[in-house]
């Protein structure tokens, strides 16, 4: 419960939009000047017109959809494997001893450093892109799940032992709720990394429909308006994904003092 909410219980908190509005304001004022400071000849109007054109031709949706599909698929693969492996290592002492160091070592490699290797294994096409996105989602999910599960306090383990909770009950009503805050943090990071790596994969690997493709085309054709449009879409989508997980968090963690 913050001050704003206490004072204006029915108004949404819009303070976070002020800096953004300022940027747009400056852009609207200065953007029309040829070789203006920010985006050269990309005035708000030009970007809007370009957007409209691309929507009409269907090109925008085609590219956008391709990127969204990649992030959803890649995240589903990498995120679920990551959660499973994090859970396994967190729960099992032996698995932790065997594979913990490997996981720690692998996480040190920057994801885009793996592009050449993935290219060798998967070619430069769609599967390599998906593999990159999956890997990007895998590590934050695996590591956050692992950490949260491993830290289950002895106090709760003892209550579970005292009342002789069965394995499934223990998982569902002790381990999962306890680990959930950490797992959700992992989810946020994983989605964000996956989205970044979708754009990266589209820029680094072979050309195919996608927002990265739109950005690249803008660069080739000296179309700043297209680039700016692409950036706005990438940023907006990332923001929306984060907002969605935050809303989910609010719902799932409503038992926490801070959320009620």
């Amino acid at each position: 419960m913050n001050k704003h909410k206490a004072r204006f219980p029915h108004l949404p908190d819009l303070r976070g939009t002020v800096p953004l509005a300022l940027i747009f304001f400056v852009w609207a004022l200065k953007g029309h000047e040829a070789s203006g400071p920010l985006f050269q000849d990309a005035s708000i109007g030009a970007v809007f017109d370009t957007g409209l054109d691309l929507v009409k031709s269907g090109a925008l949706w085609e590219n956008y959809r391709a990127s969204l599909l990649r992030v959803v698929l890649g995240f589903a693969i990498g995120g679920s494997i990551g959660t499973a492996i994090g859970l396994l290592l967190g729960v099992s002492f032996w698995m932790d001893r065997l594979f913990g160091p490997l996981l720690t070592a692998l996480r040190q490699i920057p994801i885009f450093g793996l592009v050449p290797l993935l290219g060798l294994w998967f070619g430069m096409g769609e599967s390599a892109k998906l593999a990159l996105v999956a890997l990007a989602a895998f590590f934050p999910m695996a590591l956050n799940t692992y950490e949260s599960v491993r830290n289950l306090p002895t106090a709760y383990r003892e209550v579970a032992a005292l009342y002789r909770f069965k394995l499934l009950y223990r998982l569902r009503f002790v381990l999962v709720p306890y680990a959930l805050p950490g797992v959700l943090t992992g989810l946020k990071l994983a989605l964000s990394f996956a989205w970044i790596s979708v754009i990266g994969a589209e820029l680094f690997l072979s050309a195919a429909p996608g927002l990265g493709n739109l950005l690249e085309a803008g660069r080739e054709q000296f179309r700043i308006d297209m680039i700016v449009l692409g950036i706005l879409l990438v940023g907006g989508t990332g923001w929306a994904m984060n907002a969605a997980v935050t809303a989910l968090e609010r719902h799932l963690l409503r038992w926490r003092p801070a959320f009620s």
């Binding site: 106090a155 709760y156 003892e158 009342y163 069965k166 709720p177 038992w255």
Partner: peptide, 22 residues
């Protein structure tokens, strides 16, 4: 226990009911 050790994510009712889950 010396500390109550209720599960913070379960309501009072659910905490009590957890005792006979098995």
């Amino acid at each position: 226990f010396q500390d109550h050790r209720l599960f913070p994510w379960l309501t009072i009712e659910q905490n009590i009911a957890s005792a006979f889950s098995s």
